[in-house]
Amino acid sequence: MEILQLENITKSFFQKIAVDDVSLSLKEGEIFGLLGPNGAGKTTLIRIINRIVTPEKGIVRFKGDMMTGKSLAQIGYLPEERGLYKTMTVYDQAMFLGRLRRMSKSDVNSSLNFWLDKFEIGSWKNKRIEELSKGMAQKVQFICAILHQPNLLILDEPFSGFDPVNVELIQNELISMKNDGKTILLSSHNMKSVEDICDRAALIHQSKKILDGQVVDIREERKDGRFAIKFKGNMLGFANALWAGFELVEHIEHGNNRHTAYVKLRGENTFQDLLKVLLGQIEIESAWEVLPSMQQIFIDLVKRTA
């Protein structure tokens, strides 16, 4: 079932179009990546979903009904430009933001304790934000965004400023939330994260949506028939083993007689045929079909439409 539907959303600021006729839909229990270069209109779109900005045209539906102020109680939002009240304690901050999300005091309390324990930061509860490091404050921000157990969580650049350990921590948490049936809308420049955790993605460029679909499908559709073989042995031996049915397109030497070679198939040949001709000639360490990275697809598309 679709939890969020955007239909033909258009918004401009002082005659400058920020979002141009964008339609999207998010299914329950998926992680959706919203991609796009800076200034493409992603943040405006997210603000429209959160009812911070009103669109000139178009409809936003939440669980099939028109989005209202009450729907916001089921949405969690972590904006790109985020902050906290520096002089408030973690507890007071969470209590204030939770109460704004229509939670009762006892619910805020128990939910906060749960998350603080889960992130093993229970001792921070009565610390003022100004006493915490940037990374610590970001964890608190994340907790404040999910405190009310939202059905839809919107994260704008959630990994910016996090160290790799915390990126993994947040990623794991998002996957766990998805497994619990929550939906996550993720706007990010971190393409690796999008590849790793997003089920579907859309690309916004110059205020328009130019791509939308399953991440796997997007990458599958753009593959160019290349396969990679990582092996130990002689490169000449590898090249000789290939016959007319295969084309060596790229080669990377790693040293210590180790190489990665990129090969295209010709005619009716398959990946299995390639492996068959190589077996016995070289020592294959790994082999895989090369799919374009989301980063590559992103750059190609943006350049093409520029």
Binding site: N50, R51, I52, I75, Y77, R82, Y85, L97
Partner: peptide, 11 residues
């Protein structure tokens, strides 16, 4: 300090 955008999602 950018707390305002967090607030505007509920207020």
């Amino acid at each position: 300090n950018r707390i305002v955008e967090v607030l505007l999602a509920s207020v």
